[in-house]
């Protein structure tokens, strides 16, 4: 497998007033296309910061971050937004659905940025909802769905524009074990059957077992790596 995500000497420093906090120190990491990586580590180890940088949500302080050979850390704000829309799907711990929109409209959101007719948007959203087994809940608003169903809608939203990378930040953190396993099996299937490259932050060792490998961070550095 070739490296889809190539990280070299990545450093991230936050400045809070006069205080300088170095969160990541010289990270080197390759993630091949089709990989499913779990990022683990104690709180404050920098795993979410690393995930945000890979997802193009934050800017690095030093080093380089290439995705499919492109230095995304050199992209302008608008170019980075377009890159995110085309390349990455996001799944969050707290689902982050728009409460005023129903499931169908939530899933359609990323497609609003594409040059696409309303009918095509609707069709693709229905297909995505079907993929996560929620086609019968399309007209329901988030507050009418269970936590597991909301996360599945979020997965459908992340998939609808067919991105190569899925960024998952504690996707099962708010779910019970049974529902969490369903969601993790779904992610595993997306990786194995649909070739999605997945980078997932988790505290849960059981969740990490669904990944192909686990990378451990501590105090901003990579300390360990395990292939399952």
């Amino acid at each position: 497998m070739s490296a889809l995500i190539e990280i070299r000497g990545l450093t991230k420093v936050y400045e809070r007033g006069a205080q300088r906090i170095e969160v990541l120190h010289g990270i080197d990491l390759d993630i091949p296309e089709g990989d499913f990586v779990a990022l683990m580590g104690p709180s404050g180890s920098g795993k979410t910061t690393l995930l945000n940088l890979i997802g193009g949500l934050d800017t690095l302080t030093d080093g380089s971050l290439k995705i499919d050979g492109e230095r995304i850390d050199a992209l302008s704000g608008a170019a980075l937004a377009a890159w995110r829309a085309n390349t990455v799907g996001f799944i969050f711990q707290s689902y982050n659905l728009m409460p005023v929109l129903n499931a169908q409209r939530n899933v359609e959101l990323p497609l609003l940025l594409a040059d696409m007719s309303a009918r095509e948007r609707a069709t693709r959203a229905q297909v995505a909802l079907e993929l996560v087994g929620l086609s019968d809940r399309a007209s329901h608003k988030p507050n009418e769905l269970s936590g597991g169903q909301q996360q599945r809608v979020a997965i459908a939203r992340a998939l609808v524009s067919d991105p190569r990378i899925l960024i998952c930040d504690e996707p099962t953190g708010d779910l019970d074990r049974k529902t969490a396993d369903e969601i993790l099996r779904m992610l595993q299937s997306l990786n194995r059957d649909h070739g999605k490259t997945i980078v997932m932050v988790t505290h849960d060792p059981k969740a990490a077992e669904y990944a192909r490998r686990t990378v451990h961070l501590d105090k901003g550095t990579l300390v360990d790596e395990a292939v399952h």
Binding site: G55, L57, G77, A78, A81, A82, R84, A85, N86, F90, F92, N96, M98, L109, P110, L113, R157
Partner: peptide, 16 residues
Amino acid sequence: VPEFGVLKCLGFTDRT
């Protein structure tokens, strides 16, 4: 505020 963050995650530009 978090919803605007999500929109930006999804690729909505600052201008949008």
